[in-house]
C-alpha cells in the first residue's frame, strides 16, 4: 500500500514536471534553443493566480484563465523582443539571452511584489478519495488528470491540425518550411504561446501542492523539468511526458526509500546513467552523422 501511494504521489509530481517539460521540449524542437526563462514564466503565472484569488477574490477558474492569458502574452513578448533578433546567432548567445531574461523576470518580480514568500490560498478541497486502504487526495487526481488531458490535446493538435503540421515541418527543416509557404516566425510565436500557457497551468498545480509564492519559485522546477525533457529525449513530446512522469516517480521513491536530503542527487545521478546508456534520451531520435 505504501508503495502504491508513493507511486501515485510520484505520478502527481511527475505530471507537473511533464507539463513544464512540454514547454521546454516544444520550444527546443522548433526554435532549437534552451529557454532557461521558462521556469520564471511559471513564477509569473503563480503570482497572477495568487493576486487574482487572494486580492481580487476571483474564482480559481477565472484566475487560471487570466494567468494563462498573461503567460501567453509574456511568452510571445519575450520571444519577439529577446529571441527573435538572435534567430541567426550562435546557440550560446541565445542561451545567455535566455538567462538574461530569466534574471530580468526574477528581479522584476522581486521589485514589484517583494522577495517575501506569499502563502498560496488552498484552492482545491483537501478531501481524499478512499480506495480500499488507499487514500488519494483530489488534488493528486486533478493534477494527473490535467496532465493527461493536456498531453492528449497537444498530441491531437500537433498531429491533426494544419498548424500542428506546420510546427512539425518547422522542426524538421525551417528553410523548406518557408518555401512551402509556412510563416516560420508565426509558428515560433505560437510555440512560445503554447509553452507559456502550459507553464501557467503548471504554476497553479505546483502552488496547490507547495503553497508558497516567491520570485525564484520557478528556478528549481524549471531545472527539474528541463532535466525531464532531456531524460525523455529533448524535442520529443511523448518523451517529455514520459521523462516528467519518471522523474517525479524517481524523486518520490528516492525521498521515501533512500533519503530526503539526497533525493536531488539521486534524480540527477539516474539522469546521467540513462544518458550514458541512451545518449539521446529515452525517446530521442538518434542522429546519424554524415560525412
Amino acid at each position: 500500500m505504501d508503495f502504491l501511494s508513493y507511486l501515485i504521489n510520484g505520478l502527481s509530481l511527475g505530471s507537473v514536471y511533464a507539463i513544464i517539460a512540454l514547454g521546454y521540449t516544444m520550444v527546443y524542437g522548433i526554435a532549437k534553443m534552451l529557454n532557461f526563462a521558462h521556469g520564471d514564466v511559471i513564477m509569473v503565472g503563480a503570482y497572477v493566480v495568487f493576486f487574482a484569488i487572494s486580492s481580487f477574490h476571483m474564482p480559481l477558474a477565472v484566475g487560471l484563465l487570466l494567468s494563462i492569458a498573461v503567460c501567453t502574452v509574456l511568452g510571445i513578448t519575450i520571444e519577439r523582443l529577446a529571441y527573435k533578433p538572435l534567430r541567426q546567432a550562435s546557440s550560446l548567445s541565445v542561451l545567455i539571452t535566455a538567462i538574461g531574461v530569466s534574471y530580468f523576470l526574477q528581479n522584476a518580480a522581486q521589485l514589484f511584489w517583494s522577495s517575501s514568500t506569499k502563502v498560496f490560498p488552498s484552492v482545491l478541497s483537501n478531501g481524499a478519495l478512499q480506495l480500499g486502504g488507499l487514500s488519494i487526495s483530489y488534488l493528486t487526481l486533478v493534477t494527473i488528470g490535467t496532465c493527461i488531458l493536456v498531453m492528449a490535446c497537444l498530441m491531437l493538435f500537433i498531429n491533426h491540425t494544419s498548424t500542428g503540421r506546420a510546427m512539425r515541418a518547422c522542426s524538421e527543416d525551417k528553410g523548406a518550411a518557408t518555401l512551402m509557404g509556412i510563416n516560420v516566425n508565426l509558428i515560433i510565436s505560437i510555440t512560445f504561446a503554447i509553452g507559456s500557457g502550459l507553464a501557467a497551468i503548471a504554476s497553479v498545480l505546483l502552488c496547490a501542492a507547495y503553497p508558497s509564492v516567491y520570485p525564484t519559485l520557478g528556478a528549481m522546477p524549471g531545472i527539474k523539468a528541463f532535466t525531464a525533457a532531456v531524460f525523455g529525449g529533448i524535442g520529443s513530446i511523448p518523451g517529455a511526458f514520459l521523462g516528467g512522469l519518471l522523474l517525479g516517480i524517481i524523486e518520490i521513491f528516492a525521498k521515501a526509500y533512500i533519503s530526503t536530503q539526497l533525493s536531488d542527487a539521486i534524480v540527477f545521478a539516474v539522469l546521467i546513467i540513462v544518458l550514458l546508456i541512451r545518449p539521446t534520451g529515452l525517446l530521442g531520435r538518434r542522429i546519424r552523422e554524415k560525412v
Binding site: Y28, T227, A265
Partner: peptide, 14 residues
C-alpha cells in the same frame, strides 16, 4: 551538444 550540457548541470547539482 546539449546532452553534455545537461550532464554537467546534473553533476553540479549532485
Amino acid at each position: 551538444g546539449d546532452y553534455l550540457a545537461i550532464v554537467t548541470l546534473a553533476f553540479g547539482q549532485i
